[in-house]
Structure formats: C-alpha cells, structure tokens
Design a protein around this nucleic acid. Structure first.
Lengths: 193, 193
DNA sequence: CGCTTGCATTGAACTAGGACAAGAAATCAA
DNA sequence: TTGATTTCTTGTCCTAGTTCAATGCAAGCG
C-alpha cells in the first residue's frame, strides 16, 4: 500500500525501513469521489496530497472569473497549494478538484513538523521535491511565452500522452492558456495528417 | 557586510549568532562588472548567488534563438539555475548575466552540504526560500496566461517600480512576454493620462 | 570630436488566436 | 429510454499583439 509513495520520496534521498515507517505512520489515507473540491479558493491549504490513484486539477480564478489550470496531478504526483497559505497567513485563490474517483495520502503541516524532527533527512527530500516543482513551473512559463498554441499542444501530448483520454478537452485548453474552441481547431488540423 | 544576507536568510527561520557565522564563513564574496555572464547556457550551474548590489537577468533561449527573461534579480534576491543542473546531470539552457556592476555572495553546492551538516536548521530556511520562488513563479505563470499586455505592464510597475529606470525596455518586454515595439506603444498610451 | 552601435518610437500590414453563435455528439440522471 | 446537461466542433467576424520597416536619439569608443 505504501510502496508507491515510498518509492516517490526515496527518489533523491534514500531512507531505511524504519524511517519510512515513521513517514508512513504520519500519512492519512483518503478516498474521494470525482468532482470533489479538496481546496476552495480563500481557504487555507492544510495538506499536501500524494495521488495514489486518479486525477485532479489545480486552478486559479482571477478577478473576472477567468479560470487557469496550473497543474494536473495524476498517479504518483503531489498536489498542494504551498503558495502563500502554509507559511504566511494569506488565503489562496487556488482551487483543487478531483476529476476522477481518487485515492490520496494526505500529509498535514503538523505531521510534516513531526516527521522533520524525528527524521531530519526528510527535510532534504522535500526540499528537492520543491525544487523539481519549481523547475517544472519555470519550464512551463517559458513554453507559455515562447511557443505557438499548436506547439504547446503537441508538447503537452508528449508529456502527458494519457491525459486527453482522461480529462475534458476544455481543461487542457485552460492548462495551455488557449480557448477551448481554438484547441478544437488545432486538433482538427493535426488529425488531417 | 553580512547583515543583508543574514536578514534575508532569517526571514522565516531564526538563527543564533554562531549559526550565522558558520553560514557566513561558507560564502564567497564576488564583485563583477556589468554585462558579465555568470552562467552560459549548457554549463552546469554550481552556485546560488545572493545579490548584495546590482541587477542581473536570468533567461532561456529556445531552439529558434528566441529569448525569454525568467527573472530579474536585484538587491537581496537570490539567483541560480536550480532547474535540472544541480541535482541532475543535464546541462541547462539558462543564461545569467549582470546588467549593472554587481556584488554577490556566492554559495556553492559543496558549501551548502557543509552548512546543512553543521547546522541542519538551514535546510529548512532554504526549503522555504524555494517554496517562495515557486509561489512567485506560479503567480507569474497565471498572470502571463490571463492578463492583457497592458495589465501585465502596470502590475509589473507596481511590483518593481524602480526597474524601468535601471534596465533596458526591451528586457522588460521580454520578461512580460510581449514584443519591445508593443511595449513602447503601451507606454505611449499610458502616458497620455 | 565624429562615428558607430544599440535603443526607443511610430506607422502600416498582417496573423494567431479570441468571442460569439449554433449545431452535433456524448454523457448523465432518473 | 428519454430528456437534460455538458462537451466538442465549425464557421464568421474581430482584435490584441506581431513583424517589418524607417527614423530619431543617446551613449560608448577610437
């Protein structure tokens, strides 16, 4: 049951059996139906969720109600809103919603503190995870600015080949920063070859 | 001399005098003229630089030679390419260049390791710094996708009121993801009120 | 001092992508 | 099964922003 998450956390730092057991004892397993909100804009985010099974989207809403998907998290990914909510007291404008029936391990800030005091090695592992998210987000920013919509979509397909079968197309459009209609036209054009 | 950087690192975690001295002893002070490359695309980035004085830009170049500025770092900011270079062995496509005469504290991965082993509290401080960079980058991604060019520019002015006097306008355009000409037109329009 | 080189501005022509509308297809609820 | 709701497609028109000049301006350099 814990093998997925243990493999994930051991990716850049190795832990012995005992350390992993401490870690696992601090996780809360949670099964959630599709279309459930894990976080509502304005709430404080008091978890980091590891996706065991299923798919969620994390999105912002701006002042005019315009929605932008920041992240799809599928199996073996982490999702949370670390932005300003855990360490500062500002509420976030971020929403997190399941798109399929999901299974998670929920990890709370309090558990995190406990973990770091009992097994400080984990601080390092979480720092590296954070670093990787930053790298991914920077890359995404670069692509968003410099590529055409068609390029962005074809690269998206390479990166997440299974997602178009799993999530609605207009969500993908929102992730890419283009309109749903235009994505449809792009697909149409691509299909002709 | 060390007060700026000590204040910066103590922002979310507090350290005693002794810990700060260990930290300071591991930094290398460096004075660099303007237009110097700190990192050339393809090189491994083996530092994190804290800007004591001056201004640098960090940018990507894509396959067609198109340049995008990811970050301006001015006084009291950190700049580095953590993306894939320090912990994985892929070279980065990131460039870092000084735009003014600069003073830095350079912090190497080896020093970082030493610091964390001597004073593990710092691991936490660096994790939080990382977290803040991620939050800032996510916000920037969101704005890039959802705002008009004019909005982006006026918000940029609020966030970095001093920068337009310090850096060339076409760099700001590149940061905002718009053409230099269009930024000029936006400024012209704004000036009319 | 003049010369070159880079930077900002402006205008005209062009295009990638958006907004709107309406129909077709698919999914869901009961 | 059927109606209802959501999703996807397609067409038309429209606009924010680009590209490509051309021009003026300021700065660094010999």
């Amino acid at each position: 049951m814990y093998s997925q998450i243990n493999k994930n956390i051991s990716r850049y730092v190795s832990f012995d059996q005992q350390e992993l057991e401490i870690f696992n004892s601090l996780l809360e397993f949670k099964s959630v139906p599709k279309k459930t909100m894990l976080l509502q804009g304005g709430e404080m985010c008091n978890f980091e969720a590891f996706v065991v099974k299923g798919c969620v989207r994390k999105y912002y809403i701006d002042a005019n109600g315009f929605e932008v998907i920041l992240q799809f998290a599928i199996e073996n990914a982490w999702v949370s809103d670390i932005s300003f909510s855990i360490y500062e007291d500002k509420p976030s404008r971020v929403f997190i919603e399941t798109l399929e029936d999901c299974e998670f391990f929920m990890f709370s800030p309090e558990s995190k503190e406990k973990l770091f005091s009992k097994a400080p090695q984990f601080e390092r592992a979480f720092r590296i995870l954070m670093q990787r998210s930053l790298a991914v987000t920077q890359d995404r920013l670069f692509h968003t600015i410099s590529k055409t919509a068609t390029d962005k979509y074809t690269e998206f397909l390479l990166q997440y080949p299974a997602l178009p079968q799993r999530v609605a197309q207009h969500y993908i459009a929102s992730y890419l920063g283009i309109s749903a209609e235009f994505l449809s036209k792009i697909r149409n054009k691509i299909a002709k070859y």
